[in-house]
Amino acid sequence: MADQHASVRYLVDDVQAAVDFYTTHLGFTLNTNVAPAFADVTRGHLRLLLSGPTSSGARATPDDAAGAGRNRIHLIVDDLDAEISRLRDAGLSFRSDAVSGPGGRQILLADPAGNLVELFQPADRS
């Protein structure tokens, strides 16, 4: 297998705004940018395909499936409280409060198109 990334496609209204969001706030690296149609960014082994309204990926999606849903990408962070503070200081707002469970703590924020991003700090297992 040539590509060592797991790829996820997010439909976005504004490709450049999405690129700016992911690269500025969440540590992604820009690979390809052919805005306004498409861009892709990576973080570790995750390749995020950002498809604007004129991209083939967006055109192939049925209208009743095009809205942002409950699915989300899951990004592991070392210090959730520090990330929350950093992102709030950058003017971002969250879609949920931080919640704790047996596996750790998480919070949701949305990209400029409303796609969800989960920031997750695993529970300390030591």
Rank of each mutant, 00 (worst) to 15 (best):
residue 39 A to N: 05
residue 61 T to K: 00
residue 46 L to V: 05
residue 107 I to H: 03
residue 48 L to G: 01
residue 66 A to E: 01
residue 58 A to N: 01
residue 126 S to F: 15
residue 35 A to V: 09
residue 41 V to D: 05
residue 58 A to T: 05
residue 9 R to E: 11
residue 75 L to N: 06
residue 103 G to N: 10
residue 25 H to T: 03
residue 100 S to P: 03
residue 44 G to K: 01
residue 105 R to C: 02
residue 49 L to H: 12
residue 94 F to N: 02
residue 84 I to Y: 14
residue 84 I to C: 15
residue 77 V to G: 10
residue 111 D to I: 02
residue 3 D to F: 12
residue 13 D to Y: 08
residue 77 V to Y: 06
residue 125 R to V: 13
residue 121 Q to G: 06
residue 20 D to M: 05
residue 57 G to L: 12
residue 15 V to K: 01
residue 4 Q to S: 09
residue 82 A to L: 14
residue 24 T to N: 04
residue 63 D to F: 12
residue 51 S to E: 03
residue 71 N to W: 05
residue 39 A to I: 09
residue 97 D to E: 10
residue 16 Q to L: 13
residue 54 T to H: 04
residue 72 R to L: 15
residue 67 G to L: 07
residue 11 L to Y: 13
residue 95 R to Q: 07
residue 107 I to C: 08
residue 100 S to C: 06
residue 78 D to G: 14
residue 89 D to V: 08
residue 29 T to W: 11
residue 82 A to F: 14
residue 12 V to Q: 05
residue 110 A to F: 03
residue 59 R to C: 01
residue 14 D to G: 11
residue 40 D to F: 15
residue 31 N to L: 15
residue 65 A to T: 00
residue 73 I to R: 00
residue 103 G to V: 06
residue 108 L to V: 05
residue 48 L to K: 01
residue 46 L to Y: 00
residue 125 R to Y: 13
residue 107 I to K: 02
residue 37 A to M: 07
residue 39 A to Y: 13
residue 104 G to R: 00
residue 109 L to Y: 08
residue 54 T to R: 04
residue 16 Q to F: 06
residue 79 D to P: 10
residue 73 I to Y: 02
residue 57 G to Q: 08
residue 91 G to C: 15
residue 23 T to Q: 02
residue 46 L to R: 00
residue 60 A to T: 05
residue 111 D to M: 11
residue 116 L to C: 12
residue 80 L to F: 10
residue 1 M to W: 07
residue 28 F to C: 09
residue 36 P to L: 09
residue 11 L to Q: 06
residue 18 A to I: 12
residue 12 V to S: 09
residue 96 S to R: 03
residue 103 G to Q: 11
residue 91 G to F: 14
residue 32 T to H: 10
residue 49 L to T: 04
residue 65 A to Q: 04
residue 16 Q to E: 15
residue 59 R to H: 05
residue 97 D to P: 06
residue 3 D to L: 14
residue 53 P to F: 02
residue 40 D to A: 14
residue 114 G to N: 00
residue 109 L to G: 05
residue 91 G to V: 07
residue 14 D to S: 11
residue 108 L to Y: 15
residue 18 A to K: 02
residue 12 V to R: 04
residue 23 T to V: 13
residue 36 P to F: 08
residue 20 D to R: 08
residue 17 A to E: 09
residue 31 N to Q: 15
residue 17 A to D: 04
